[in-house]
């Protein structure tokens, strides 16, 4: 019985070793990285460049902000934020984010 188990384990381990050597060539084609390097430099880099130019040009226009109206569903303060004075959100921008009483610069 032990002998059969031993043989089964050995066969399994041998099979695993074969699978492992197979995995070594997974993807198969040596030098396959060249395609992806070319895609990175000749597709990804120009695309990021265009995206940056587009975002930069669009940001040249002045920022608008919504007019302050004390709607119930905006500036909700059911309890204090756990930081600072508890009234400002984590990414508070005094110019763009009004407090429940209105914009700070007004």
């Amino acid at each position: 019985m032990a002998l059969y188990l031993q043989r089964a384990v050995n066969a399994y381990v041998r099979n695993n070793a074969r699978l492992a050597s197979h995995a070594a060539t997974a993807g198969g084609h040596g030098g396959g990285w060249k395609l992806w390097k070319n895609l990175s430099f000749f597709v990804a880099v120009p695309a990021i460049g265009l995206g940056m130019v587009n975002a930069y040009l669009a940001h040249q226009e002045p920022h608008e902000r919504p007019e302050f109206v004390a709607y119930d569903y905006l500036r909700i303060r059911t309890k204090r934020f756990p930081w600072g004075d508890g009234q400002k959100s984590l990414f508070h921008n005094p110019h763009l984010n009004a407090l429940p009483s209105g914009y700070e610069d007004h």
Binding site: L74, S89, F91, N93, L96, N97
Partner: peptide
């Protein structure tokens, strides 16, 4: 930081 709304806005 440039968002005109916060997590507490609706």
């Amino acid at each position: 930081m440039e968002a005109s709304f916060t997590i507490a806005d609706s």
